Computed example of a mutant assay.
Amino acid sequence: MKMECSWPGDNQLMRMYHNEEWCVPTTDDQYIFEMLTLEGAQAGLSWSIVLSKREAYQKAFHNFDITFCSNLTDNDLTNIKEQYNVIKHIAKLQSVRSNAQAVIKITKEFGSFSNFLWRYVDFEPIINEWHSEGQIPAQTDLSNQISKDLKKRGFKFVGPVTMYSFMQAIGMVDDHVTSCVYHTSNKERKIKENGF
């Protein structure tokens, strides 16, 4: 019998994120930037806290419009810290602006932020075959490499552990356990069985 990964527990936001977004491949730069921001905000905190504040982040940063975020002033960021239910860590909030500026530079060079990131995996997600959640790594050589490369380009809060979570968030890796109905192999099987 196929089950689901256990890490979301009974938290509804966590379950929705696991079922609908986690490890689903995306090339949408605005969504990718959102995930980069939220994963950076998580550093030292739990993902459930970040998800509970996600709607406030979306309002504060205009749904993570990259141009808007790149043009934020220090006063804008202070106002966001004071007026919105975001994590009150000023360096993390400032990183939204500097990371947006870095994304714009990458976009000019590679056509999109998505192109830059997905070339690390030859534009194909890594489908892992973990049998238990304890096997899933916190970081990998690849997340370490991406972390180093992004830091060189001026990104903040992009350590190797954060980058591995980010890779999961945008579907560069599928780390659902093999017994989870949302693992790629099970989703493909379900599609075939339903005749789609």
Results as ranks from 00 to 15, higher is better:
1 M>R: 11
3 M>Q: 14
4 E>K: 15
6 S>M: 13
10 D>S: 09
14 M>L: 14
14 M>D: 09
16 M>V: 11
16 M>L: 12
21 E>C: 05
21 E>T: 09
22 W>F: 04
22 W>C: 04
27 T>R: 15
27 T>A: 12
28 D>H: 08
31 Y>G: 07
31 Y>W: 13
31 Y>K: 13
34 E>P: 03
34 E>Y: 03
35 M>W: 04
35 M>A: 05
36 L>I: 08
37 T>G: 10
38 L>K: 01
39 E>A: 01
39 E>C: 02
41 A>K: 03
42 Q>N: 06
43 A>F: 00
44 G>F: 08
44 G>C: 07
44 G>P: 06
49 I>Q: 11
50 V>M: 03
50 V>D: 00
50 V>I: 15
51 L>G: 01
52 S>N: 05
52 S>A: 13
53 K>L: 05
55 E>F: 00
57 Y>N: 08
58 Q>T: 07
60 A>W: 04
63 N>C: 06
63 N>D: 14
63 N>P: 03
64 F>C: 09
65 D>H: 06
67 T>S: 14
67 T>A: 14
69 C>Q: 04
70 S>C: 02
72 L>V: 09
72 L>K: 01
75 N>K: 15
75 N>C: 11
83 Q>G: 08
83 Q>C: 09
83 Q>F: 04
86 V>T: 12
86 V>K: 03
86 V>N: 00
88 K>E: 07
91 A>P: 00
96 V>E: 02
96 V>H: 03
96 V>D: 01
99 N>P: 01
102 A>S: 15
102 A>V: 04
104 I>K: 14
107 T>N: 14
114 S>N: 04
116 F>P: 02
122 D>H: 12
127 I>E: 11
127 I>K: 07
128 N>W: 00
129 E>P: 03
129 E>M: 13
129 E>W: 09
129 E>S: 15
131 H>T: 13
134 G>F: 05
134 G>C: 06
136 I>K: 02
136 I>T: 04
138 A>Q: 11
141 D>N: 14
142 L>H: 08
142 L>K: 10
142 L>T: 09
144 N>D: 15
144 N>W: 11
144 N>T: 13
145 Q>M: 13
146 I>F: 02
147 S>V: 11
147 S>R: 13
148 K>V: 10
151 K>W: 05
151 K>M: 11
151 K>Q: 12
152 K>Y: 08
153 R>E: 09
154 G>E: 03
157 F>P: 05
159 G>W: 05
160 P>A: 09
164 Y>H: 12
164 Y>D: 07
164 Y>P: 07
164 Y>I: 08
165 S>K: 06
165 S>L: 10
166 F>K: 06
166 F>W: 06
167 M>L: 06
167 M>G: 02
170 I>H: 04
171 G>M: 04
171 G>I: 03
172 M>A: 08
172 M>K: 11
173 V>D: 01
173 V>M: 02
174 D>Y: 00
174 D>A: 11
174 D>P: 00
175 D>T: 09
176 H>R: 00
180 C>L: 01
181 V>S: 07
181 V>I: 12
188 E>G: 07
189 R>T: 04
190 K>E: 12
191 I>F: 05
193 E>P: 01
